[in-house]
Structure formats: C-alpha cells, structure tokens
Nucleic acid binder design. Sequence first.
DNA 1: TATGAATGAGGGTTCATTCAT
DNA 2: TATGAATGAACCCTCATTCAT
Lengths: 206, 206, 206, 206
Amino acid sequence: MAELTRREREKAQHRRLILEAAEAVFAEKGYHAATMHEIAERAEFSVGSLYNFFENKTDLYRELINMRAEEFTAGVAESLEREPDVPGKLRAAIRAKLEFFRTHQEFFLLFARLHSGEEFEGPVALPEKTRRLYVEGIRRLAAVMAEGIRRGVIVDRDPTTLVLCMDGVTNSAIAHWMHGGDSAEGVVAPEVIEEVLFHGILSGGK
Amino acid sequence: MAELTRREREKAQHRRLILEAAEAVFAEKGYHAATMHEIAERAEFSVGSLYNFFENKTDLYRELINMRAEEFTAGVAESLEREPDVPGKLRAAIRAKLEFFRTHQEFFLLFARLHSGEEFEGPVALPEKTRRLYVEGIRRLAAVMAEGIRRGVIVDRDPTTLVLCMDGVTNSAIAHWMHGGDSAEGVVAPEVIEEVLFHGILSGGK
Amino acid sequence: MAELTRREREKAQHRRLILEAAEAVFAEKGYHAATMHEIAERAEFSVGSLYNFFENKTDLYRELINMRAEEFTAGVAESLEREPDVPGKLRAAIRAKLEFFRTHQEFFLLFARLHSGEEFEGPVALPEKTRRLYVEGIRRLAAVMAEGIRRGVIVDRDPTTLVLCMDGVTNSAIAHWMHGGDSAEGVVAPEVIEEVLFHGILSGGK
Amino acid sequence: MAELTRREREKAQHRRLILEAAEAVFAEKGYHAATMHEIAERAEFSVGSLYNFFENKTDLYRELINMRAEEFTAGVAESLEREPDVPGKLRAAIRAKLEFFRTHQEFFLLFARLHSGEEFEGPVALPEKTRRLYVEGIRRLAAVMAEGIRRGVIVDRDPTTLVLCMDGVTNSAIAHWMHGGDSAEGVVAPEVIEEVLFHGILSGGK
DNA sequence: TATGAATGAGGGTTCATTCAT
DNA sequence: TATGAATGAACCCTCATTCAT
C-alpha cells in the first residue's frame, strides 16, 4: 500500500509536470500551433505518455484551463471574504487578479483568448465546469456590486455591467504590461486602476 | 479602356468578396483552424483563385486585419475631430468604437485576439503598417487625454494608462454583447460605460 | 493575300520567340520545374497565347527539342559531306558538334538529359521523329567508321561502339566547359580531344 | 541494451528500405516527377514514415545520391590502390566503374543527370559533401594521369582533360547498354573501351 | 488572335493518435 | 507504465489548362 501511494504520488507529479509544459507551449503558440511533440519534449516525457494522462490534446488543454481557472476563482473568492466592506472587497479582487496573473503570465494569454471568443465554442469548447466557474465568478462580483448599490456606495447601475467595466480595466492593464513590457514605468499601478475605476477619469468637483 | 476598367472593377470586387468570406471564417475559427478551402467555398471561388489575390494564407489574414484596422482608425480619428472639447472627443471615440464593432462584429474576434497576444508576434506577425496604426491610435487618444489634463478636466495621471482603461472598458462591453448575446437588456449601454469611465463606480460625494 | 502572308510571317516569328524563351527556361530549370507562366513572361506573351501555338507543355518541349535536333543533325551531316577522307570527316563532325553547342549552350543541358534518360521515356517521351533523327545520326557516323575500317584507317571494332566513344569524349568536354567554366585554360581544346580519340592516351611506341 | 540495439537495427533497416524504393522511383521518373506517395508505397511504408527518416524530399534525394557516391568513390579508390602501374590503375578504374553501374543501373540515371547539369545547382543542389567526393574522385584519377605523364607512359596533355575523356567514354558505354539494352552484343566490351582509350581509333602504324 | 482570371487535381508536408515492445 | 516509430487524413500551395472577353 505504501508502494501504491508512492506510485500515486509519482503519477500526480508527472501529471503536473506535463500540465506545466503544456501551459508554456500553449501560451507561446496558441492551441493550434502547439504540438503534442513539443509539449512532450518540454515535459521530458514521450508523446505516448501524454496519452496516459490525458485523453487527447483537447482534453489536456481543458484540464489545464480548468486547473488554473479554479486556482484563480478560489483566490478571488478568498480575497473577497477577507475584506468587510464593498470598496475593500473590490480593491482586493483587483489586486488578487493582478497578482494571480503576475505569477501566471503565461496563463493570461490563454485566459484572454477565452474572453475574446477563440475556442470558446467549437471543437475546443471549454468543459461545462470551467464555464460555470467563470460565470459564477462574475456573479459573485456582481453580488458585491449589488450590495454596494443597496448600501449607497456604488452607483445604481446594472451590477453585471459594473463588473464588466472592472474586468475590462484590469484586463487592459495586464495585457499592457504583458506585451508592452515597458519594464520601467510602463506597468500600470493598481492604485491608478482603482482610482479610475472608483472615481472616473474626470477630475474636479464630482 | 472601358474594358480594362471593367476588368479592374471586377477584380477589385472579387478581392473584396474573398476578404469578406475570409473575415467570416477567420472570426469563426481563428487563424489556424480556418482553411483556405473553406474560405474559397464561402467566397464561391476556387482555392486557386485565392492565390491570385493573396500570396498565401498569412498574407490574406494580414490584408484583412489591415483593411479593417484602417477603417477603424479612420473612423475614430474622424470622430475625434468632429468634437471640440475633450469629454466630447472621448465620448465620440467610445461611440465610434462601439458603432464600428456593431457593424463588424466578426472583426472584433480577430481584433481581440491581437490584443490578447495571439498572432501578434510569431509566424503570423502583423505587418508593420498595422502595428503602426494601432500605436498611433493609442497615441492620438493619449494626446486628447493630455490636453484634458492640461485643461484640468481630466485627472492628472499617465495619459496612456487612462487610454488603456477606456479601451478595456469598451472591449469588455463589446465582448459581453458578442457572446453573451443576452439580446434583451444584456447590451451594455454606451451611456453607462461613459458614466463609469467619467465618474467611476463609486456613488455620491466623491 | 499580302495581308495573309504578313500574318503568317508574324505568326512564325511569334512561334520562334516562344520557342526561344522556352529553351532558356527549360534549360535553366528542367522540364518539370519550368512553368508555362515563366515561359510566357520571358516571351512577353500571355499564357493563353502559348496554347495558340502549342497543344500543351509537352508539345512545346518536344517541338523545341526536335527543332534543335534537326539543326544539329543537319549541321553534322553537312560537315561530313564537305570532307573527303574518313579522318577528316570525323574531325569535322567533332568540330561541328562543339561548335553547335557553343552557340546553343542552353540546348546542351536538354540534350544531355535526353541521353541520361530523363524524359526519354515516360510521359514526356520524345516524338518518334526526334528519336529517328538521333538514331540516324549515330548510324551515319557508324557508316563513316565502317568505311574507315574497310579502308584500314580505323581499328577493326564495332563501328557503333567507336561512335559511342567519340560521342562520350565530346560530351564530357562540352559538359566540362559548361559548368566548370574555367574560362581560362579549362576549355578542352578540340585538338586534344581529337588526338586522344585518334591516338589514345598512351604515349610512345604503340 | 539488447532491446535498444534491436530497435536501432530495425530503424537502420527501414531507412535502407526507403532509400532503395526512392532510388527506384527517382531513377524511373526523375526528381520532380517522383512523388513521396509513390516512394512510400513502393517501400511499403506510410508517407509520414518517410518524414521520420528524412527531413523532406530533397533531403531524401541527397542522402541517396551521397550514399551511392560514397560507395562508388570508395570502390574506384580501392581498385586504384590494388594495381601497381599506371595503365593497370586506369584499367581497374574503368572496370570498377562499369561494374558498379552494372549492379546499380538505376543509380546511373541519377548520376548522369548530375553530370549533365540538372540539379547540380538550384533548389536540389547536392550537399557539399557529395560535390567534394566528385571533385576528389576526378583529382585522384588526374594524379594517376600525371604520374603516367612523368613516367612517359601517358601522353603529355592536361591530366584533367585526359580524365574527362576517360569518363566520357565510359559514360557513353554505360548509357548505351542502359537504354539501348541490345542485350545481345550491344554491350560495349570493357576491352574495346580500354583499347580505344589507350590506343585511339586510328589503326596502324602510330 | 491575344489576354489573364478562374479552375481544381495533385503534390509536399504536418501532426494527433495508436500500439507493439 | 513509458516509449517512439508508424500511420494517414488533412492542410497549404502550385500550375497546366480553359474560356469569356
């Protein structure tokens, strides 16, 4: 039984190694241009081994997306709970997102593609699980917005729309420092993002 | 000479038909999953004909992107000039963008992919021309922001960052009504976008 | 009728222009790699025009080969008749061949390919006409050899074999100055060829 | 380890099978008209398998040429060493060549095409390795000629030219029994070739 | 007669997937 | 379980040939 456990640990470890290699390759090349051979090579396994862990290329891709999506969602959810008031929750959500993608830059490319529609449907459709995660994440934030509206600290607009705005601003910021890579001052400070999101870009006597 | 002109007109027309078919297929499938065969079929031409107009698949893709990018940039630039003051210019830019992508929904998918990094570099790199257009567009808006800052109507933050925020918000909105397609009330109203962007999501006495 | 004649002259002229362009392209690229488009371009005609003069690519190729083969055969035959004795005839034949290929270098490449078997059979088979020309040329020279043998000036060996030897030596010489192109002294002098062919490479008291 | 060796042996064997099939098809059709599909079929492998052994069609072709060129060169070199005196060396070289091409008839077609310039340059250029082999082969024979000249047994002419003559005569002979295929007496006897090369075609008191 | 856009079969090449070892 | 050679469908692209003008 100890033996079985060691085996299981090894198996899980191998699976993880493959997923990491896959993330790097998918992020660099995109789903279609990535090849199973290259993933296998980077993971230092044979092609055949990939098929011992994942049914096929699409399955590997989905598992990868789902894994990260779960991590991401969990991170945001946790940060929401840590903060008591609405503005604090939103600030925390923004920082959690920025933080997550700073450590998982490669994943942002995949993530953004999902948003932009590629492979959102079609042969490489996401599993229902991931889709639910995504929708649920939006909903959770919308609930926060709704609460803010009730409490009078958030403008009385459709909560989902407000979440979208927040999402859009953060996505743009991440995308900017991803390619732009103006290492110096190009990085959009979270504070500015929050300020703009909270108070708008018009100055003065609002 | 009339004959020559007729031939030329036809050729230009055929080119346009192919570009339209290509836009549909590329948008639906993404660059890699799109096949020349399918584009040809949708355009009601033979595969070989595509190659009478475009050097290869990549070239076709680039020409398409570039064409729409030019249309888009021109539209935004024009709308900027029509408005006298800074808030008016920004509002006009937002509406121009929303309007453009409402009539070119298919293109938004391609456009968003560029933003999200896919095929932004690599074998399907954009032509320098398109890249310049994009950068120039950002710069033009940043100039408007800078002017606003000078005049005290825009908060004193890095103008490019402000532009990114604006871009992000609009992208999200477009993306939302593209897939979400909650035809009814799901469409994010331009007014809300502008309001959020201008005054932020916090209500009351800021 | 004068008009018709002018037309005919023009037609013949156009045909010749196409054949010349074809010779250049076929020689440079070989039969398969040559394209009708390139031939048309070099001839300054449209592709369609080529098909007004020749049935298809193969036909164009054959007509070209045949034309030059006739010129060549005629040249050699004439030079044979001009000389009275056997050694003179052979010398004249060698010089005629060298001379012909000096002015039709491009054709040598095609000619050599025929010898080496490519497109000698298969889909691009030579027309019977050309094949006959070739065989007849060999036979004519063999007859000269035979006469020489009868007269005791040529060694008593199979005449065709002797012709082949002669052919081989000249071919090698031409091939050498074609690619080797050692413009300086690399050119094999006709005298040396004749000397070797007539007296062999062994020196002294044979 | 035994297992590994078995796999390696099999792989080498498969490679050889493919090369043999390729030789047959290339010889029959020429480089351009040969198709990977047909080679695969004749080798009883799938198309994809060819690409597990060779980068592409050109690579396969080159490897093939190079392999035989090495065999040929080695055979001639060895036969040169076996003989002590110059005429013996030359005779041995001639026989080695005839012998080689008798067992590798198919290769002669490829070999001759190289001589006749096709694909000697251009997209299907030979690898430097093969080219060096060829030049070196000529040089080795030229050295033998030079030695003969020094010793007074060979006529005092440019050694390279003498080698070319020798080459030309043998090529013609081989080409003759290849297509001509007069199975009976058409085969040019090596003795006649040697005799003509050594003593020339003129009879009598030289 | 000359033109050149349109055609589409066919070739080279890639790559996800399988399976014997 | 791990391997990697073998497979073959499917892709991009070429080019001889046709035909309306």
